[in-house]
Design a protein around this nucleic acid. Structure first.
Length: 90
DNA sequence: CGTATGACGTGCA
DNA sequence: GTGCACGCCATAC
C-alpha cells in the first residue's frame, strides 16, 4: 500500500480522525476523508471502516452527506440508537 | 502488477 | 421529490 506525504496510510489517518470524534460529534464520510487528507476518498473511507470497524473507533458517528446514517452492523439500528443517545438528530 | 469490491457523492431523467 | 447510472479513491486478493 502506498503512503501519503506524511508517511502514514490513508487508512491509519481515517482511524485517527474517526477516533478523534468527540461524543455528540457527527461527521460525514466526506468530512472524514477531508480531515484524513483525501477529500475525494470518501469512497475509501467507507471501505476502510467497513473492513476495520473497531470498538475504539466510533464509526457510528460517521454519517452520509444526505442525512442517512449510512451502514453499520445489523443494518444500522444500533448506530441510529447510539446517535440519538448522543444527541444527534437524524 | 492487475482486478474486483465498497458503510459514498453527484448528476441527470 | 424520487430513481437510475456513472465516477471517484484506497484496500484487499
Amino acid at each position: 500500500m502506498l503512503k501519503n506525504s506524511l508517511g502514514v496510510s490513508f487508512k491509519h489517518c481515517v482511524y485517527e480522525v474517526v477516533r478523534n470524534i468527540k461524543k455528540g460529534e457527527v461527521l460525514t464520510y466526506k468530512e472524514v476523508a477531508t480531515l484524513a487528507g483525501r477529500p475525494l476518498a470518501y469512497r475509501a473511507v467507507g471501505n476502510i471502516l467497513n473492513n476495520n470497524y473497531d470498538e475504539k473507533i466510533p464509526c457510528h458517528r460517521v454519517v452520509r452527506s444526505n442525512g442517512l446514517i449510512g451502514g453499520y452492523n445489523r443494518g444500522g439500528e444500533e448506530k441510529l440508537k447510539r446517535l440519538r443517545q448522543e444527541g444527534a438528530i437524524i
